Simulated assay, not measured.
Amino acid sequence: MSTNALYTDLSGYYDLMCCDINYQQQSNSIVRLHQFLGNSGKQHLDLACGTGPHVRHFIDLGFQSSGLDINQPMLDIAMRRCPEAQFSLQNMTEFYVDQKLDLITCFLYSIHYSPGTEALKACIASVHKALNTGGLFCFNTVDKHKINNKASVRHSAEFAGSQFVFESGWHYQGEGEMQSLNVSIAKTDADKTQQWQDSHAMVATSFTELEALLSPYFEVQIFEHDYDKIIPWDLASGNALFVCTKREIE
């Protein structure tokens, strides 16, 4: 099953799949970083916004927030969650905005959905073009050299009388510009179980390579992947939060 087909078919279960994510904590953390390192403006865009939970929190925090995604069923849910927000069906690797922005976010490692390094470069250029002076671009990412192919994250949840088990894990073959996010979903009703499995092709970078791609456009700071504290990256962990302030290009 293709990536888009999986997420289209299961878009109604997406929030359940992500029920253990603390969206409010993540949003509050980025707002703090924006206060310290950004321009304090209130125009916000969430790339790969999915069903809009982050957008909801940014609105509640006083931002004029918007979102984009390539999946219309996801956006339909987002529009019901955030009727006051603007959502658009666009690819984050090459998007446009009508009004300049102060803060652009991309949560849940979605920056890796760029299908290759050239597409990632296009995404970075699009973000830079869309930001106001002093605007901030924040996203989390994984270093391809730190991936443990045997590790995975698993959780279960109940919904409408069904039991769901979700499992996901990164895989990098050790060379090349692509990695995969392997996803497994099982839904059990009484004694009947349905299963979905998919492998999402995603761009792979090291933190060093990613910083080099960003540096012509942004002042880059790398922090620990910790939404409770603002801590500089320890140079060892494989997950990090990139916080990028727009450079003005001559």
Score class of each variant (00 low, 15 high):
Trp170Pro: 03
Glu167Gly: 10
Tyr172Trp: 06
Ala186His: 13
Met202Cys: 12
Lys187Leu: 14
Asp191Leu: 11
Gly174Thr: 01
Ala125Ile: 13
Ser152Cys: 11
Met178Ile: 15
Val153Ala: 05
Leu213Ile: 02
His200Asn: 14
Val153Gln: 03
Val142Ser: 07
Ala157Val: 13
Phe159His: 15
Thr188Gly: 06
Gly169Cys: 03
Gly134Cys: 04
Ala186Ile: 14
Val153Asp: 05
Ser206Val: 14
Gly161Ser: 05
Gly134Trp: 02
Val153Ile: 05
Asp143Ser: 14
Thr193Cys: 03
Lys187Thr: 14
Asn149Pro: 15
Asn140His: 07
Trp196Lys: 12
Lys144Met: 03
Lys129Leu: 07
Leu213Ser: 03
Leu181Tyr: 11
Leu181Trp: 09
Gly176Glu: 02
Ser180Pro: 11
Ala186Tyr: 11
Val165Cys: 13
Gln173Leu: 09
Ser215Lys: 15
His145Met: 07
Phe139Arg: 00
Gln179Ile: 07
Ala130Asp: 01
Tyr217Cys: 01
Lys192Ser: 12
Thr193Leu: 11
Lys129Cys: 12
Phe164Gly: 05
Lys129Gln: 06
Met202Gln: 12
Cys123Asp: 02
Gln173Met: 04
Thr205Leu: 03
Thr188Val: 12
His200Pro: 06
Ala186Asn: 12
Ala190His: 13
Ala157Phe: 11
Val203His: 06
Cys138Phe: 00
Ala201Asn: 11
Ile147Tyr: 04
Ile147Asp: 01
Glu175Pro: 00
Lys146Ser: 08
Met202Thr: 10
Thr193Met: 05
Gln197Cys: 07
Leu214Pro: 09
Ser184Lys: 14
Gln194Trp: 09
Ala160Ile: 10
Gln179Pro: 08
Tyr172Ala: 02
Leu214Gln: 01
Ala125Gln: 10
Gly134Val: 09
Ser162Met: 10
Asn132Ser: 12
Asn140Gln: 02
His145Leu: 13
His200Ser: 15
Phe159Val: 15
Thr133Phe: 06
Val142Arg: 04
Phe166Val: 13
Gly134Met: 05
Phe139Met: 00
Phe159Tyr: 09
